[in-house]
Design a protein around this nucleic acid. Structure first.
Lengths: 195, 195
DNA sequence: GTCTATATAGTGATAGAC
DNA sequence: GTCTATCACTATATAGAC
């Protein structure tokens, strides 16, 4: 397949998103210039506008794609017991987030830099993910497996606790991810059962 | 006490810090200009430099002051039982942070905008606070009151969970702060005792 | 598709008048 | 202590050549 000289859309597009993701995570959306992204990709700033209409859309695409992948990957098997569904959620959440530190970081840090419309879209996706965990906790509470005063609070508490792993975990550190997951599962399990 | 016309140092100084805090929390350090801060205070941009040598120092002072106040206020009574010390920590942490949403927010969001030296200073204060909780958990584990696989992980998990309250709690909402604290205490207590 | 050049506007910080 | 004016940069985004 012959290609016009200088035609690299299929290569440059992903490189722009990867560079933007890394730089946004490292320095913050507002502190990263289009020139800095272009420099990282190896093109001039003007060329970036072949791949995004503006800087705002670039950020939005990174965040919405991440949230959609999170929702696609988080499968809740309703045929299992609430305790098994919760165990799976904890394992999945920590692994998925540990694999994508930059995406997770900007998803928390750069929400306020989204336009109002874009924020609503991302926020709706986040709520759907939270609802998935709340469904598990509610099922367990209804079945008498869990003792939870308020499932919404418990949902937010568990997610905050699990996502916090990303602020300190690094592969090759004192503990393996399996060990970390085991202890978090132990704490989450105890926190929601009778005690 | 006579005062020279235009001399408002004792008023303007705090106003500058308050405006910077509010704007940094709302829009992010990098997105807030000195002109925007000045406008909020009611002076021209040049006047701000009577109160801070530069924008970086303004951020640093907000963060370090907050961390020092946190450390000063978090008193751990070693004569109490580990469970009572932990209960007090949970209650204190949630209340202190709920009272200072802007300070807490920028303390997490703007760490990367600190210079290397300033970051080290703030980071050291944060570690001292974490160590306070880890001391409680270790005492309880040593006494057999708590069952904790790794006290460092448990420390980070509990702090992440408690600080997460700030992302959603607003006074006057569905639940009072007392109710929120009661449920978080229930979850934390169960998570660290035998189960 | 990428380049160079540019329009337009904003930035942190400083100098000197009052 | 605050003002106005300004320096030296940097920003996003666009136009038109190739």
């Amino acid at each position: 397949m012959a290609r016009t000289t200088g035609s690299h859309s299929d290569i440059t597009g992903p490189k722009v998103r990867e560079a933007a993701l890394r730089l946004f995570a490292q320095n913050g959306f507002a502190a990263v210039s289009m020139r800095a992204i272009a420099s990282e990709v190896g093109v001039q700033a003007g060329a970036l506008y072949n791949y995004t209409p503006d800087k705002q859309t670039l950020l939005f695409n990174l965040l919405s794609t991440h949230m959609e992948q999170l929702l696609d990957a988080s499968i809740d098997d309703l045929s299992q017991s609430p305790i098994d569904r919760l165990r799976h959620f904890v394992d999945f959440h920590i692994r998925f987030h540990a694999d994508r530190p930059d995406e997770v970081f900007i998803s928390y840090m750069e929400l306020r830099n989204l336009s109002a419309d874009n924020f609503s879209t991302v926020e709706a996706l986040r709520r759907r993910y939270e609802d998935r965990l709340e469904g598990i906790l509610q099922s367990g509470a209804d079945a008498g497996d869990f003792v939870i005063a308020d499932t919404k609070i418990a949902t937010l508490a568990v997610i905050a606790m699990l996502t916090g792993v990303n602020t300190w975990f690094h592969a090759g550190g004192r503990l393996t991810l399996d060990e970390v997951i085991a202890q978090y599962w132990d704490m989450v399990r105890k926190a929601v059962v009778a005690g």
